[in-house]
Each structure stands twice: as C-alpha cells, then as structure tokens.
Design a binder for these strands. Structure first.
Lengths: 150, 150
DNA sequence: TTATCTGCAAAGAATTTGCGGGAGG
DNA sequence: CCTCCCGCAAATTCTTTGCAGATAA
C-alpha cells in the first residue's frame, strides 16, 4: 500500500493532511504526477490523465494543479514558453534547478549547495528573508568535437 | 543629440545598426523605454506611449517589444504574475537580477559577481555554454525590530 | 445530508496575426 | 516606388469561472 518512499499514496496522504477531499480525479492526477519523470504542462497532464479516466476534464486538471500548488504538493515551473509546467514537490531535500537546452528544449535538473548558500546570502544582504525563487539556465551544448581554438 | 551615455538615441542607433526602420511608433516606444526606471508590462508601456502619441496601437507595442527583444535591445522579464515585463538591455556591463517583495511587489535590482561566476561554472559542468538565464528571488523584508532571539 | 467537487461551455486575459492602407528609405 | 510597418479587429492560446448535477465524508 506504500511500496517505497515514492509511492502513489504520498500525495493522497498530503491531501488528507491538508483536509482536501480525495476524489477520483484527484487520485488519478496525483498518480500521473507521481509517475512523471519530466515537467509536463497542463495539456500534457490532461492527456495522460485521460488515458486512465477519459471523463476527467481539462478544467479539473487546472483546478487541481492550482490546489496542489497552493498546498505545496506540486511545484509550478516556468521554462520561458508561455505555459506552466509542474513537477511533484518534495520539500527542501529534493530542491533543484533546471538547465534548459535552447535548441532541443531538453531539461537537465541540477543542484548546487554553493548556489543555495549564495542566494540566501544575497537576499539577506538586501534585507529580505528568502521565501521563494526562480532560477533557470538556458544554454547550448558545448560541442567537444570542434575544440581546436577557443 | 546624444546628451549623455543614456540618451534617447541609443536605441535608435541600435535599430539602424540592426537594419530596422526607425518609424515614429518605434521612436516613441524607444523613448518611453529609455525613460522608464521600472519594469513596465505591455499595457503600461502602451499607456505611457499614448501620452505622447495617441494613435499608437497596442498591437504595435507588442510587435515592437518582440522585435526589440529579438535584437537584444530590451530584456523580457517574468515576475511571476502572468504578463511579460520589459526593461532596456544594456549588455553585460549592466547585468543584474531582481529581488521581489512578495507582500508589496517592490522590485530591487542587484548584481553579484559571485553569482555570475557560479552560474557559468554550473552550466559548463553540465556540458552547456550559457546563453541566457532567469533568476528572481522572492522574499519578505526582515523585521529588524523583533530581533530578540534568532 | 450537505458542503465540495466536477464537467461543460462560456468567459477572460495576454498575445498574435491577416489585411488593406500608409510611410520610410 | 517598393518594401516594410501600422492600426484595426478578429483569432489564438492559456487559464479561469458560473452553473447544475454528482459525490465524498
């Protein structure tokens, strides 16, 4: 009923903790999110959700994502194209950022302790307590084959 | 005709360099951007532009901002509300980031050499050459008056 | 039961685009 | 003159919402 630390019921658990009704659509959406290895947008989520239950509407996916975001069950991301992306939120322990390949759109996650320390320091120096932040790096793969000059 | 390093004609200059026609709407929009001390969205820009020339349309502001962004004349920003913000781009010499007060929406610009070095290093370690990046910090002002414990 | 939740379709908000006339070089 | 550009309005895209019926607790 809770296979591993990343079981499907984690989100369900969070929902009841936060006093949310655990309905069928929410259960399905939670499962899809748990199984996602990428950063799907709402349409993509909806399409995956529909493979499990065709009756679930796009509006419900939107509503559920807003709800999940407010309760910190998922994290909303912005990769520069006009739509919101989502991924399961795991708290500070799984905190990371994204390196986006501007040619292919490929997303690489990374974490840097140095960066974590630095951003808190910067905020403090400006007189703020950091509550959130957005960081995305956009780049092109380094072409190792043409490393003659440069 | 070029009062100081920050004259209105800087953008005009960039336009001709890039082979863009310097039309009246673009001239006005360029001027508004040069004079802006903040990070206006398109509607705000349009409203300022209209104070100078009522005939300039919203569509033209949108088209011009896209053009200016593609040619690196302005930088597009995303502060988390659903709309694009713009500010004049000054190249690497005036590079900076934003600290946003989540209560008031106040934006403080900052620059950190340390951060600049770090982000390039991270990108390289991931096998990328950094071409762009987004960084915004969201925080609440530290209340110095209640500094008893902590 | 009863307050929530959901699907549907319509509404909204931000941004883009087709078109015919207009202006810069 | 001949493109490129503009204003206008309609179209797109992403997201939110009002409503009446369905459902979890």
């Amino acid at each position: 009923m809770m296979p591993d630390g990343r079981g499907e019921s984690r989100i369900s658990l969070l929902c009841s903790e936060k006093g949310l009704r655990m309905t069928e659509p929410r259960r399905v959406i939670a499962r899809v999110l748990s199984e996602a290895e990428d950063h799907p947008d709402v349409e993509e989520l909806h399409s995956r959700v529909r493979e499990i239950d065709r009756s679930i509407s796009l509006a419900t996916v939107y509503r559920t994502m807003n709800l999940f975001e407010e309760t910190s069950i998922v994290a909303k991301r912005d990769f520069g194209d006009g739509r919101a992306r989502y991924e399961e939120a795991w708290g500070d322990d799984n905190h990371h950022h994204h390196m986006i390949d501007v040619k292919t759109g490929k997303v690489t996650e990374f974490y840097s302790e140095e960066l974590e320390i630095l951003k808190v320091k910067i905020a403090n120096e400006l007189g703020y307590e950091l509550v959130d932040h957005h960081l995305e790096l956009f780049g092109v793969p380094i072409d190792r084959s043409s490393d003659k000059k440069r």
